[in-house]
Amino acid sequence: MNIATLLNAMPGAIAQGLIWGIMAIGLYITYKVLDFSDLTVDGTMATGGAVCIMLMLQGVNVWVALLCAVLAGMLAGLVTGVFHTGMGIPPILSGILTQLSLYSVNLWIMGFRANQGINVTKYPLIVSARNVRNLSLNNPILMTVAVIALLVGVLYWFFGTELGCSLRATGANERMSRAQGINTKKSKILGLMIANGIVALSSAMFAQYQGSVDVNMGRGAIVIGLASIIISDVVFGRLFNNFALKLVAVVLGAVIYYMVIQVVLWMGLNTNLLKLLSAMVVAVFLAIPYWKENLRKGGNGHA
């Protein structure tokens, strides 16, 4: 175990954490703000990349391709929203149905191939892993931080508007929201669209970063997102009360997650066991508030 190997891998872990942190912000909006466990993200996390890469391979401008990726993600959110509010399907199942459909849709977008590559020397990618150790302006960490800053700013503004407040109210107390004249179905659909648009943005950036898109790229994205949110809660929960800072904390949570993963891999864990490890860690952290509550009440563990 050579410490230099680990240090050498850290810039990559940070860049990856930042990009997946954007995904975690999307998840934060559904999971924390709307109180909706949205499994669509596992599909959207590949859709964004697929749309972006395929459009760029056709010669479309990178920013236009990113925008289209976001719109595709929003469309996926719309579908989940309609499954739930228009067809009465429970939240988790709505997400699963969209996620499964997206598997086919993603393959379709990618010309029925499981992966597609894009060459950084031939295309003007905004982020690339190749430059992650460069001390120059094309370092992907810089671009990603800029995108995050812009995104957090826009979301901070939005959730302070009348419309944004109505979304927060819907997540906080649905019945009260309806009594205050809020169309809670519309709120949920809009929230899902915004969240999945953000996830698709993250996906599009990550596909550029690694120079390829894979149909399985988003598998387990929801767990990584939850892990980031939980880590941010544990580490920064008492520190940050402001909404913008909370979003920043979620991104930092993702960065910490990827740094820890890097350390675990460096210590010799088989890569194939990573998802098992992530899921177990998330399960334990999700259980902590429940255990605490039981301990406080002196209960015997029955819900």
């Binding site: 508007t161 009348e162 407040c165």
Partner: peptide
Amino acid sequence: EENLALAARRGDRRTLRQGI
């Protein structure tokens, strides 16, 4: 105050104006 602001807009269209 956010709860009150939500109630003050009961029946109105929720726009992109400041929530409070």
